[in-house]
Simulated assay, not measured.
Amino acid sequence: MRVSQSLVRTISILALVISLSNAYDPSPLQDFCVAIDDLDGVFVNGRFCKDPRRVNANDFFFSGLNVPGNTTNQVGSNVTTVNVDQIPGLNTMGISLVRIDYAPNGGQNPPHTHPRGSEILVVIQGTLYVGFVSSNQDNNRLFSKVLHPGDVFVFPIGMIHFQVNIGKIAAIAFAGLSSQNAGVITIANAVFGSNPPIDPRALATAFQLDANTVRELQAKFGSI
C-alpha cells in the first residue's frame, strides 16, 4: 500500500511539472493552426484555426522589417512587432519577432515586461546599454551590459528590462520572443497612465513621492 501511495504521489508531481512546463503557448498537435478571426474554425488558446485546406503561403509571410521605424516620439524608439497578429501562421508556434529602432543619444525602449515570453536580443547597429532587474526574492539585482553590433542579450520572462542607445548614431536591434503574443507592460505607462487613474495617495506612498508630484506624472502619462 505504501509503495502504491508513493507511486501515486510521484505520478501526481510529474503530472504537475509537465502541466507547468506547458503553461505558456500550447504545442501544436497538427502541422499548423493558422489564426483566423471568424468562427469558421477550431478555437485554440484565444484564436480560431483556419481550415487547413484554405491555408496559403501568405499566412506565413510578413514584409517590412527592412523599413526603419519612426523614433520621433517621447522615448525616441519604435518597436515593429511581428507576432500572430501580423503572421497568422505563428498561432501555437510559441515564437514572435520585433525590430527596435532607437534615436541617437538616448533613444530608449523604456522599462517594461513581457508577461508571456522570454526575449533574446541582437544588436545590428549602434551601441546599447541594456539590462533587467530580478524579482524581490532575488533582491532586485540589476544585470546589465553595453552591447555592440553582433552582441546578444537575454531577458527572462516577466523581468523588468530596458534598452538605451548610448551612441551618437541611430541603433537597430532585432529580438525573438518565446510566445506568439508575448504582450508588453510599460511600467511608467501602466502605473501613472492607468485608466481609471490609481489614487495618487497610494502611489505617493508606494514611490515615496508627494501626491502633487504623482498627479503631475499622471497628467504627463495621460491618466488624468
Rank of each mutant, 00 (worst) to 15 (best):
K50P: 03
G131F: 06
M1Q: 11
N105T: 09
H161D: 11
R53S: 15
A202T: 15
S21N: 10
V84M: 03
D199M: 04
A170R: 13
M93R: 05
D101S: 10
D59F: 00
G183K: 02
F162W: 13
G158I: 08
V214A: 07
A204F: 02
A23R: 06
S144K: 02
G176W: 01
S223C: 15
N58T: 13
I172P: 03
T113F: 01
V133M: 14
D38F: 11
N78W: 12
T127H: 07
T72E: 13
D199N: 15
G69D: 07
N83T: 01
C49L: 04
N195H: 13
G158Y: 03
Q86I: 02
N91I: 00
P196M: 08
V84W: 01
N78M: 14
Y129N: 09
V84S: 00
P196T: 03
F48S: 06
F43T: 00
N78I: 02
H161I: 08
H114G: 08
Y24Q: 03
R99P: 07
G167L: 10
P111Q: 07
G167T: 09
Q5M: 12
F32G: 08
S63E: 15
P200R: 12
P115T: 08
V146I: 14
H148M: 10
K145M: 07
I95F: 05
N181Y: 06
D151S: 12
L7H: 03
T113Q: 10
A173M: 09
G167M: 07
T127D: 15
I87W: 00
G126V: 12
N136H: 09
S144N: 10
P197T: 09
D151T: 00
Y24S: 07
T205P: 00
A23P: 02
T80A: 14
L177M: 15
L203S: 11
D138V: 03
D51F: 01
I157K: 03
V191D: 07
G64R: 13
K145T: 01
S96K: 00
Q137Y: 03
S178A: 14
P26F: 04
H114L: 05
I124V: 13
V98K: 00
V133I: 15
I169G: 12
N165C: 01
L142H: 00
Q86P: 04
A57V: 06
I172V: 15
L128D: 05
I185A: 14
M159T: 15
S6E: 15
G107K: 02
N22I: 05
T71C: 14
N58R: 09
N195P: 01
A211M: 08
I18V: 15
F155R: 01
M93E: 00
K145S: 08
V214S: 04
G106I: 10
D85M: 08
R141C: 10
A170F: 11
Q74H: 05
P196H: 03
L121T: 10
N83Q: 04
R54M: 13
T127N: 12
N140P: 09
F174I: 07
P111S: 07
I13F: 12
G94Q: 07
P68K: 04
A219Q: 14
Q218G: 11
R53T: 14
T92E: 07
L97K: 02
V98S: 05
L203M: 11
E119R: 00
F48V: 01
N136V: 14
T186V: 13
S63R: 11
L16C: 08
N109C: 04
